[in-house]
Measured scan of single mutants.
Amino acid sequence: EAHAAIDTFTKYLDIDEDFATVLVEEGFSTLEELAYVPMKELLEIEGLDEPTVEALRERAKNALATIAQ
């Protein structure tokens, strides 16, 4: 499951495998979680700032909209 989540994140969020791995290690496994989890939870991840989190959430929401079509 972790590998599938990493693949999904790299494909749809335009991030590298290392960043995707950090997200999975922090407990995220779906685009929905990244799109809708409280921003505070993402900001608790070391190295993430508000602009990065906002961009990540926007990419996740856009990916979900694209997949739904």
Rank of each mutant, 00 (worst) to 15 (best):
L56E: 00
N62M: 09
E50V: 15
L56C: 02
E58Q: 10
L42W: 06
L64Q: 03
E32G: 07
K11T: 08
E50P: 12
R59C: 06
L42E: 02
T30E: 04
H3R: 15
A63V: 10
T10F: 04
I67Y: 01
E44N: 13
K40L: 12
D14M: 08
A60S: 05
L43R: 06
E41Y: 06
V37Y: 09
I45P: 02
L34F: 05
F28V: 05
Q69T: 11
K61H: 09
L64I: 13
T52Q: 10
F9R: 01
T30F: 05
L13K: 00
A55W: 07
L56Q: 00
E26V: 14
S29F: 14
E25M: 13
F19S: 04
A20F: 02
E50R: 15
E50M: 14
A35L: 15
R59P: 00
T30G: 04
G47W: 12
F28I: 09
V53T: 06
T30V: 04
N62P: 01
E54L: 05
I15R: 00
V37K: 12
I67T: 06
E46A: 13
L64W: 02
E58F: 01
T52F: 14
D16K: 06
L56I: 12
K61R: 13
V22A: 11
H3A: 13
E41I: 11
L34I: 15
A5P: 08
K40H: 14
E44L: 14
E17G: 07
A60E: 01
E26I: 14
L43A: 07
T52M: 14
A55K: 13
A2Y: 14
L43T: 06
G27M: 02
V37N: 12
L23N: 00
T8C: 10
D7Q: 10
A68D: 10
K11R: 10
L23V: 02
L31C: 02
I6F: 04
A68Y: 03
L34C: 02
T30R: 09
I45H: 04
P51K: 14
A65I: 13
T21Q: 12
E33M: 08
G47M: 07
H3D: 10
A63D: 01
T66C: 09
V37H: 11
A68M: 08
T10W: 04
A20G: 02
K40P: 08
T52Y: 09
T30I: 03
H3W: 08
H3E: 11
I15M: 06
D7R: 07
A55N: 11
D16H: 08
L42R: 04
E1W: 02
A55Y: 05
D49P: 04
K11D: 05
L34T: 00
L43P: 04
I6D: 02
F19K: 05
A35Q: 05
K40D: 13
T8A: 14
V53Q: 03
A2C: 09
V24Q: 04
V22G: 04
E46L: 14
V24E: 03
E32F: 07
A4F: 10
E41W: 05
G27W: 03
H3L: 14
M39L: 12
A4D: 11
K61Q: 09
A65T: 09
L13G: 01
M39S: 10
L43M: 11
L31S: 00
A35G: 04
E32M: 09
I67P: 04
A68R: 11
T30Y: 05
I67A: 07
R59Q: 09
A55E: 09
E54K: 13
D14W: 06
I67G: 07
Q69E: 15
P51R: 14
I15S: 01
E50Y: 12
E25N: 15
L43V: 07
I6G: 03
T21F: 11
K40E: 14
T66K: 12
Q69S: 12
F28H: 03
E1G: 13
G27P: 00
E32S: 08
I15H: 00
E41Q: 12
E46Y: 10
E54I: 15
K11L: 06
D49T: 10
A4N: 12
E17S: 12
F28Q: 01
A60K: 00
E58M: 04
P38S: 10
E25W: 06
T8L: 15
D7P: 07
N62A: 15
P38N: 09
R57E: 02
L31D: 00
I6A: 05
T8E: 10
T10N: 04
K40F: 12
A55R: 15
T30W: 04
Y36A: 11
H3I: 14
M39H: 08
N62H: 13
E58N: 09
E25C: 09
D16W: 06
E54Y: 02
Q69K: 14
K61F: 05
T21A: 13
F19P: 00
E17L: 12
T30M: 05
V37S: 12
T21H: 11
R57T: 07
E1H: 13
L31N: 00
Y12H: 06
I67W: 00
E1V: 13
N62Q: 12
E26W: 15
I6Q: 05
L31W: 01
E46H: 14
E17P: 11
F9C: 04
A60T: 03
I67L: 10
D18T: 12
L31K: 01
F9A: 02
V22Y: 10
Q69Y: 00
L56T: 01
F28D: 00
P51V: 13
A60M: 03
E32W: 10
K11M: 07
A20V: 03
S29R: 14
E50Q: 12
L13D: 01
E25Y: 10
A4V: 13
D14G: 13
T30L: 06
L48C: 04
L34G: 01
E25R: 14
G27I: 02
D7K: 08
L42V: 05
D16E: 09
K40W: 14
L34Q: 00
T52G: 10
F9K: 01
L43E: 04
T8K: 12
V37L: 12
V24T: 07
K61W: 02
E25T: 13
A68I: 10
